[in-house]
Nucleic acid binder design. Structure first.
Length: 233
DNA sequence: GCCCAGGGGGCTC
DNA sequence: GAGCCCCATGGG
């Protein structure tokens, strides 16, 4: 597998080449689509296994109800929260998760994250992972898009796209996939931000079938334009 | 009706 | 550490 060729420079060049191809095709994605750091965090919870369109409805409901703030989440009854975020699905679970992250923020940083992001990335990440409802993807989304820290976000699209390009195994574990990208890219929050957003942009156009031979898959033209094209190997 | 969407918790082995 | 089920609405 290509990922074995680590630290020889080729891999970094190829990952940057793919980034450039995506950027030229789609342009800047201006992520995260939120007004404040706090709203990024709320969105990161609500978007779990849910399309952003439905998350927007839930966030709009929270805003209209005047509870889209740290104090708002802390003071609002959990059943009321669940009702407001109903459009985002899993509303009972996510209401409990919003309460948990709100409790964490009130004890550790406040909604601005200032005291949190001063600390080493790995420490903050571990603390976030200890919060109910915050798994690795949500933690990295918060670190990157709310905190501006260089923590690469892996999602289903990342594994599907780079798996089909033959760069990583499609079933690579989250932590190994994250380590792979972070070991082979310069640690730039701006780069990680745009890269992940572009991956999602391409991922939305992919067929969701698991058939790697699908000729409609836009990853194929991407491969032909990059050094990972099997025809060039 | 069926499958999937910018996952994570809890449980089992 | 991997595999499975559950959470649940909305869109194609």
């Amino acid at each position: 597998m290509v990922m074995d060729k680590m630290n020889d420079g080729t891999l970094t060049d190829s990952l940057m080449e793919i980034y450039d191809l995506l950027y030229k095709r789609f342009g800047p994605q201006n992520w995260w689509p939120a007004e404040t750091q706090f709203e990024v965090i709320v969105g990161a919870i609500l978007t779990q296994s849910t399309s952003w369109r439905n998350v927007e409805k839930a966030i709009s409901n929270l805003r209209t109800a005047g509870v889209l703030s740290l104090d708002g989440l802390l003071e609002t009854d959990i059943d009321k929260l669940a009702e407001l975020i109903r459009p985002s699905g899993y509303y009972n679970m996510k209401a409990r998760k919003l309460k948990a992250i709100a409790g964490f923020l009130s004890e550790n940083s406040g909604s601005d994250l200032d005291s949190l992001i001063k600390r080493p990335l790995d420490e903050v990440r571990q603390d976030l992972l200890s919060v109910y409802g915050v798994g690795p993807e949500t933690a990295d989304s918060i670190l990157l898009y709310a905190g501006g820290l260089p923590s690469f976000v892996i999602d289903a699209y990342t594994r599907r796209i780079f798996g089909r390009l033959g760069i990583i195994p499609e079933d690579l574990s989250y932590e190994k996939a994250r380590t792979f990208f972070m070991d082979n890219l310069p640690p730039s929050a701006q780069l990680f931000n745009e890269y992940h957003a572009l991956i999602v942009r391409l991922g939305k156009e992919m067929c969701t079938s698991r058939n790697p031979k699908c000729n409609l898959c836009p990853v194929k033209p991407l491969a032909r334009e990059s050094s990972f094209c099997c025809n060039r190997a």
